[in-house]
Nucleic acid binder design. Structure first.
Lengths: 211, 211
DNA sequence: TAAAAAATCATGCAAATGCGGTATTGTCGG
DNA sequence: CCGACAATACCGCATTTGCATGATTTTTTA
């Protein structure tokens, strides 16, 4: 047998932690090297052993699993983190990915799927539950049906706003569009009214969809 | 048997197109309803029939598969698009997702995996090859080792830039930080020099990481 | 075709901003 | 202890910008 994939588990609920440990340790090619009840315990002891894969519960007492990953990923860059959670809430998924997790599965996944996911993760993949993958894919979509604030703007106003967003001044935009600077100023004034803002930065923020 | 999943195939290479059609049509629960050699042909005929799933090659003569999806997704919002490609290049993956595709698999996937992916896609999932999923997950990572331009800024400068990015004026920032407006202006001036920009919008763009 | 919306241009003012120089204070590392 | 740097602060000037008011022409749409 090849060297097994070493796994650590961070999970506060006794029953689940034990079940996972037994599942992983019992399977061929896997070795459960450590289990922790809290994020803090994992932070204390994991950096020393640097396992291959960490199964991380999100909803932990004290520090949550996402923040735990954020810290551990710095200390053990080679370790892969798989978030395990009961629910597939939007925000936590993205927060977990940002923190450095590479896999996100639901606890209700069947055991064999879990082991498969661990293997896949260890081999460089990023296993995700279908519904979670869909969320992620959707986040890329340029949503055409979004209740876009920018709809109230005319094409010309959008054109001008787009150039403002690139950091161009009134004068520059005027030159680019071959119109008078005063015209551009008028447009910008209209844009501000429609978007309910009072400065370029605010307008550009709305245009680029950042709050 | 339930109503089968209706599938269309867009693929220029005769051999692959036929193979896929036979595979899909031969499988239980699937029906290949149409095949097209080009994006243009698909655009002409698909909107009328609105199938469940479209397998879309990316590298097509004339219009490419991504642009084709972009248009078709508008016309048939209910249809799911699965990109099929030989390679897993970075940019095309993201472009495809932005265009509205919900699945992205490699042609070298085994036949049963392909059928499984079609089913999963039709049921609301987003099947991806592991390597592609990893690319996507990685795109969310906030790379802590990135050569961040903002490193040259002092903490105080970042603080000020952060408030500017929220649309606050010199005066407002000064009030928030309990310092004189001239101090804030000086800081901003320094920020501009360090970031090599000449206006708030440009500075904020760099701060928030857009080009 | 008449009314509404969009695009164009102008003038003017006050405030905000960009750019330059100068200076004081405190901290930190060599 | 000294130099480098950060943070603080001021003065001044030219430009940009936010805001108001008004007007003409073109385009869209009802």
């Amino acid at each position: 047998m090849n060297t097994p994939i070493t796994v650590a588990i961070v999970e506060d609920k006794e029953l689940i932690r034990q079940s996972l440990a037994i599942l992983v340790d019992g399977a061929d090619g896997f070795a459960c090297q450590a289990t922790f009840e809290t994020a803090e315990a994992a932070l204390d002891h994991l950096p020393g052993q640097c396992v291959d894969v960490v199964l991380m519960d999100i909803d932990l007492p004290g520090m949550n699993g996402i923040d735990c990953v954020r810290h551990l990923k710095q200390l053990c860059p080679a370790t892969q983190f798989m978030m395990c959670t009961m629910y597939d809430e939007d925000e936590t998924v993205f927060e977990a990915l940002k923190a450095g997790a590479n896999a996100y599965i639901l606890k209700r996944s069947p055991p064999h799927k879990l082991l498969e996911a661990i293997t896949e993760l260890h081999e460089g993949g990023s296993p995700m539950s279908s519904t979670i993958a869909r969320k992620i894919a959707s986040s890329f979509h340029i949503n055409p049906t979004a209740p876009n604030e920018l709809d109230v703007l005319t094409p010309r106003e959008r054109e001008i706003l787009d150039r403002l967003s690139k950091g161009h001044s009134h004068k520059e935009v005027a030159a680019e569009l071959f119109v008078s600077p005063t015209t551009v100023r008028k447009h910008i004034f209209n844009i501000y009214e429609k978007l309910q803002v009072h400065s370029k930065v605010e307008a550009v923020n709305k245009y680029l969809g950042r709050k």
